[in-house]
Nucleic acid binder design. Structure first.
Lengths: 136, 136
DNA sequence: TAGTTTCTGTAGGATAACCTACACTTTATC
DNA sequence: GATAAAGTGTAGGTTATCCTACAGAAACTA
């Protein structure tokens, strides 16, 4: 009777790799290694890719003698999952509470605050009908 | 040559315990167990308390035959650390970027948006009026 | 074709995180 | 004291995370 301990959706090390794939698209391990934000040994990187593949967060296809890796799990989904966890841990599950605490606690420049105000205003205006527009 | 793998500041299991201590103050293991958001075996809880004690996140003092545990690490500090990690992973380290993405991606009720707008407005006013804040 | 380079597959090991079991200590009760 | 109840300390085990090493396979070059 072994109690299963479910693995984290994305571990810190895995997120580092996914980050590169989310930005760059389809890459070979060597290319990921080059674009990596810190020095990483090829073998260590490949370990992360292997577990990401097993967990289904990436796919790969052969090209020449190497594989091209591509993200399956989307950045937005992963982001939501992690913010959700944070909100549950610290804010009784309320995303609004999480945002509020962030606004209160962190140092934000006046221009950043202004932008956030505008963003909230936009967001408030289109809660109902109105199609969403691209922009930024 | 063994490369050290530094432990997480607060693991998910540890946060659960700290959450109770942050809310309730000083408690005995049994009391924590009663207030715990999910069923937990006393021994499992005590394991968490032990590691929290070793890491210095809690202290304890004897009362009767049991110990009273109290948080040392403050909720705000832990919260900041975790949001910082998230911002670094997903938003190039920008807290404002993190907040923006939360506002955009999550479902917020109109009233919540209004509150956030007001909060940002307050926050903006404060920064402007007392402009000699050197920050940090 | 042989030789070299480059990439992959797999085994293995170290630490961390989580839980359980059981014996020991302390306190209260008789 | 003797005893039971409640709380503690410690040893042990399983899974997860992270990294390394080395041998083999695939492609390129001569």
């Amino acid at each position: 009777m072994t109690k299963k301990q479910q693995p984290m959706a994305l571990t810190p090390g895995e997120i580092e790799v996914m980050q590169v794939l989310w930005e760059q698209g389809e890459l070979k391990p060597t290319e990921i290694e080059e674009r990596f934000p810190r020095p990483i040994k090829n073998a260590a990187l490949r370990f992360q890719l292997k577990t990401l593949l097993e967990k289904g967060h990436v796919t790969r296809r052969k090209e020449g003698k190497a594989y091209l890796y591509q993200a399956v799990t989307q950045r937005e989904g992963a982001f939501k999952k992690m913010t959700r966890r944070l909100a549950e841990s610290f804010c009784q599950g309320s995303t609004a509470g999480l945002i509020a605490e962030l606004i209160k606690s962190e140092e934000l420049s006046p221009s950043e605050i202004k932008e956030l105000q505008e963003l909230a205003a936009q967001r408030g205006a289109k809660t109902k009908s109105s199609r969403r527009r691209e922009s930024k």
